[in-house]
Simulated scan of single mutants.
Amino acid sequence: MPHLLHLDASARSRSLSRALTARFAHAWRAADQDGRYTYRDLATDPPPPIGQAWTEICDDLLRQGITDPARYPEVVTTPERAAAWAIVEPLLDEVLAADIVLIGSPMYNYSVPGVLKTWIDQITFPRMSFKGKGFVVISARGGAYGPGAPKAPFDHQERYLRDFFAGHFAVEDARFLSVELSNTRVDPVLGHLTADHRDSAARAETAVDELVATLWAG
């Protein structure tokens, strides 16, 4: 049965992105109660930034032409590299075991949360391929960044993830859903856009349900 890896990156414990990924995961697990499910909260248990030993592992993989993740431990040859690998291994194993990777990612300062970026850094090695895996990113943004919006050119969140998944990991199936204008919940200046935000949130909930059904049907 398909294995779902569920990641949340929001610093808010009751965030919109968390609520929507939870909705997705609940529907997914209801469709297959015997399926495998792994959850990791990147905000409460953040991976550390990569360090010197990680770069040494990466360099040796390139020098030796190693592209099979099963062979990565061959270059873990020092205590420092072993300590770095102890961080990488469980994170990478979770991704390799997954069929679908579900990521909840708010937009922070036009991009992804730092904890998501460090997770990506930790699991990314030369010439990796996650072809055949599906990625689903559910995001919440304080403003409006969709096509045609004045701030659309400032979206370095979806564009970065979409380009990275395809360009480095050879991912062919990446789906993105977002809720816009979440700051209307806290910023009185945006109060006149509250109805637009509610419409966006309702559309996102419907899109989550439809996407789960589509993925299972496919």
Rank of each mutant, 00 (worst) to 15 (best):
D196L: 03
S200H: 02
L177C: 08
F176G: 05
S200W: 05
P188I: 13
A195C: 03
P188A: 11
A195R: 04
E180D: 15
P188Q: 12
L190Y: 15
V186H: 12
V186M: 14
S200C: 02
D196I: 00
N183Y: 15
L190I: 13
L177E: 04
V171N: 09
A170L: 08
E172A: 09
V189C: 02
A195W: 01
R175E: 05
V179N: 01
A202V: 03
G191F: 09
R203P: 01
D199Q: 09
H197K: 00
R203Q: 09
D187F: 05
L193C: 04
D199F: 00
D199L: 07
H197D: 00
R175M: 05
D187L: 08
L177P: 04
R203L: 02
D173H: 13
E172D: 11
E172C: 05
H192M: 08
R198P: 00
E172Q: 13
H192D: 13
H192W: 06
V189M: 07
D187N: 15
V189D: 11
R198V: 02
D187I: 09
D187W: 12
D187P: 01
L181P: 15
V186T: 14
D173V: 08
V179W: 08
V189R: 09
R185E: 05
F169K: 01
L193G: 05
T194V: 12
S178F: 08
P188T: 14
T194L: 13
A201K: 02
H168Q: 11
L177S: 06
G191K: 14
H197W: 01
F169W: 09
H192E: 13
R175S: 10
